[in-house]
Simulated assay, not measured.
Amino acid sequence: MKQSMSKKRINKVGSLDEGFSRISDGCSLMFGGFGGVGNPPTIINGILQKGIKDLTLIGNDAGFPTIGIGQVVSQGRAKKMIVSHIGSNPVAGQLMIDGKMEVEFCPQGTLAERIRAGGVGLGGILTDIGIDSMIEEGKQKIKINDQNYLVETALTADVSIVYAKKADTFGNLVYETSARNNNPLVAMAGRYTIVEAEQIVETGALDPEAIITPGVYVDIVVQSEGIDWKWAWE
């Protein structure tokens, strides 16, 4: 006689406090988004409210002074940033000039590939971007087929924070238009990945063809408290 076997579905939905148990002073924090759009607002507000500091922030940019990750930077909570640019946040520039925050600049495409490499377990990438410029300072060079390349190390972080339009209870993710920027790569490269989702549905409710990030990369999903995107057009 056959015995029926029930499969217990994994539920990764949790509270913001559970997620914050992994974010502490001095940790490295990788964030998705571009210019604030796609940054997880509820998680960032929590970082500000809890007074978490001395962070190493890894992401595309420094946001704007009062928008997205830029708020963390503007309040002096970051000791270092690894970014493609900080030009949209003059406070970040001043902190760098004053020696209060270290900034490691990385070309945008190279930065994305370094994060992707970290997410898939590679040690780094080879690129000719930055050859014979200040970018190559202190970096190893390799010649392949008479072409010089820089060795750019892979990037990972203690915690990745991600913003998604929809998540199911297993952590499969769907993003909305440009808010997808960098979030799929960031989700892969964190040793612990926290997802803030606008909408959380049961596993199986998402169209499999629409899922961008598989839930295997996600550790916890928290409900977003909402955000008004009107600022982007003002």
Rank of each mutant, 00 (worst) to 15 (best):
D128K: 04
Q199V: 13
P208K: 14
A197R: 01
S224K: 04
I131F: 06
W231S: 01
V83M: 11
I10Q: 10
P107Q: 11
F34P: 02
F34C: 08
Q199Y: 11
I47D: 00
A92E: 11
H85C: 09
G68L: 05
S178I: 05
E225G: 10
Y192T: 07
M188W: 10
V37R: 13
D54Q: 14
M30Y: 00
G51Y: 07
I200Y: 01
V37K: 09
A78S: 09
A78R: 02
V159Q: 13
T177M: 13
S84V: 01
Y192M: 11
N45D: 09
W229N: 15
N39F: 00
N60Q: 05
E209K: 04
T177S: 14
I200P: 11
P214D: 06
G171H: 13
Q71C: 04
D146E: 07
G190H: 07
D158R: 04
D146Q: 09
S160P: 03
I52N: 02
L150V: 14
N148E: 14
Q3K: 15
I211V: 15
G38T: 09
Q199E: 14
G59Q: 13
P40M: 01
K53C: 15
R180C: 08
V72K: 00
I86M: 07
T110C: 08
A205V: 08
N148C: 13
K50A: 02
V73Q: 00
F170Q: 12
R9P: 11
M96H: 06
S88R: 13
G124F: 13
A210R: 13
Y149S: 14
M134I: 10
V159N: 06
L150H: 10
I67S: 02
R114T: 04
G68K: 00
R9L: 12
S4A: 15
Y163H: 06
A197D: 12
V216I: 08
E202S: 03
G46F: 03
T66F: 14
K12T: 03
M81T: 03
K139F: 12
M81V: 15
Q3I: 14
G124V: 15
G63T: 06
T156R: 12
M5D: 15
F170C: 12
F64A: 10
V103A: 15
N183E: 04
T56F: 09
R116L: 14
G109H: 08
S178Y: 06
Q49S: 12
A197C: 13
W233V: 12
A197G: 03
N39A: 00
K2W: 13
I47Q: 00
A154V: 09
G190C: 07
D25T: 08
T66W: 11
I23G: 01
T56I: 08
